[in-house]
Every structure is written in C-alpha cells, then in structure tokens.
Design a binder for these strands. Sequence first.
DNA 1: ATGATAATGATAATAAAAATCACTTTATAA
DNA 2: TTATAAAGTGATTTTTATTATCATTATCAT
Lengths: 161, 161
Amino acid sequence: MEQRIDRIKKQLHSQSYKLTPQREATVRVLLENEKDHLSAEDVYLLVKEKAPEIGLATVYRTLELLNELEVVDKINFGDGVSRYDLRKEGADHFHHHLVCIECGSVDEIQEDLLGEVEKIVENDWRFKIKDHRLTFHGICYRCHEKQDTGEESGSEVKELN
Amino acid sequence: MEQRIDRIKKQLHSQSYKLTPQREATVRVLLENEKDHLSAEDVYLLVKEKAPEIGLATVYRTLELLNELEVVDKINFGDGVSRYDLRKEGADHFHHHLVCIECGSVDEIQEDLLGEVEKIVENDWRFKIKDHRLTFHGICYRCHEKQDTGEESGSEVKELN
DNA sequence: ATGATAATGATAATAAAAATCACTTTATAA
DNA sequence: TTATAAAGTGATTTTTATTATCATTATCAT
C-alpha cells in the first residue's frame, strides 16, 4: 500500500505534479476499494470521511489526472456515470469486466484473453492498438445458482448503482 | 431499405408498438447513416430536416425503444454522449469498434473474433453471456499513412465530436 | 362515434461533469 | 529569509445530455 503510493508519487513528480494531501487521500480510497468500480461521487463521499474539507471539484480533477497517468482507467458501463478503475501495476492491458444484468455486480477478468484477437486486428485492419475495452453483459454465477435453487434474486452482491 | 423498414415495422407490431411517422423518419435516418455513430442530438437534427415537426423527446424515446428491440445498440466511446449503432440484421453478436485517438474516426469490425474468448468466459467464470462490448483505441491506418508521408493529420474522416 | 390507450411535442427537472474564480499552498530565485 | 510566480484547492456556477411531466393529438377496438 505505502509502496504503491510511493510509486504513484514518483510518477506524479516525474511529470511535475505533486502528491498533495487531497490527492493522496483520493488515491488511498481507490486502493482501499480496488475491487469496486466507484463513480466520482462515490470517491468523493469516501474521501470526505477521512478528509472532510476536500471539494468535489478536486476529486474530479484528481481522477482526471490519474487517468492521464494511466493509474486509473475511466470506464462506463452504460448507466450514465463514469467509473474509475485502478489499473493493476505493471499490467500492459486493461482488464475485462463481467456485468451481471440481474444483480448489477461487476467482476473483473485479469487474464489477457485478447492476444490472438489483437494480432488479427493489428494485421487485418492495420490498426495500432493502444488500449481496449471489453465488457460482457450477462448472468453471473451467483444469479445462476439463485435461479437454480429457486431463491430470490437479492442484493447481497454490491449493486452497480 | 424498404424491406428493412418493413421488418422493423413487424418487429414493433409483434410487441404491440406502432411504426408512427416519427419513428419511421428516425429509422430512415439511422439506415441512411448506417456507417456513422450518431448521438441522439445528431439523429434529431437529421430527422428534423425531413420531419421538422418532430420533438427531441420523441427521438430519445424512439432510440430507447429501438434499443430495447435490439434494432440499435447504445454505445459510449468515452466522450459524454451515447451513440446509437444499427445492429446488422441477423447478427447474433454486436460488432466491434476501432476508435482512432488521432482523428476520432470509428471503424467497425463485423467479424465475430470473440468465439474462443466467450467459451473461456462462460466456462471458467460460469457467466452466461448475453451481450458484449469490444472497443479498441489506437491509431487507424489512415493516420498511420499520414504520419509515414509526413502529411498533416487532418479531418477528412468524420470526427467523433 | 366514443371511450381507452398510445404517442407526441414543448418544456421543466435532474444530474454528471466542466468551468470559473478568489484564495491558499508550495516552489523558486533574488 | 523574503517576494514572486506557479500550482492546487474549494465553493460555486455553468453547461449539457438525458429524463420526467403534462397537456394535446392520433389511433384502435368496440
């Protein structure tokens, strides 16, 4: 955690940005909620618990900055809000998502999966790939099992909204 | 074109919706701009040329309806607007996109490409896939060639914004 | 025709994100 | 150290895409 923050700090400095207390608090929230897919508003509320003086605008600016530095990826699952997803350190590709249309859960796939596909795209379409977004919409294993046992589709899994 | 509209009409009727003149005008605009990725506003302006009495709300409602019927797919390339993309007739999967970060052009890949990947996702994650979104961000062949010949990066390709 | 329902258009309401601006903090250089 | 520029912040306003509302109109079944 601390090492991770330290590396982000260096990354900021290398582009002559500073790791201000507000930025650090924001990064900490992202690290502590690595598995979630927080909106700017979500991040704002969480940061406010620890640094109540922070303003929403600063959170937006920080997230924008972290996005430029490729520390986070901005992603949109089709509801109207942008979500910010920490990029795995050293990951050369953005991970994939499974969005459940039943319960709203979002799971991540860290495996590459697209190696072959990207070769085809680069060769056949002469397209130099810099980034990708792959999201599957469907029914997650939890909702499957619920349906199998006749259990109701509840909200034990964190909802998207 | 006419046959296509006729089939959409039947599809609407099968769910007891009507193909009103406004809806037909909207569908025509989508068909006439099949290769583009129009926002609701874009569609509105184009429809207005032919049916000036139409209201923006109706366009939004129609696009929403066509999205439910899977005639169009709502997609978001990361700029703040939703875009509406005609689904190829008979296509059992949503096509993929190549977004150029130089010129903003958006090309489509109709080939499936994800067959193997989806098998893995369904098996390893026990996830029942209903839909997917795959977008690559990078440099398109046109911008490549421009850079090679030292030509400036212009706007002969339709911009995203 | 007539009553019920669906659809429309104008407009207002909502809400996410961006812009503005006065103020504060930090860094730099005399 | 001081002062002077630059960067960053917080409160607020503005912008803009989308949704909701509601009175009016068109359509359909009886």
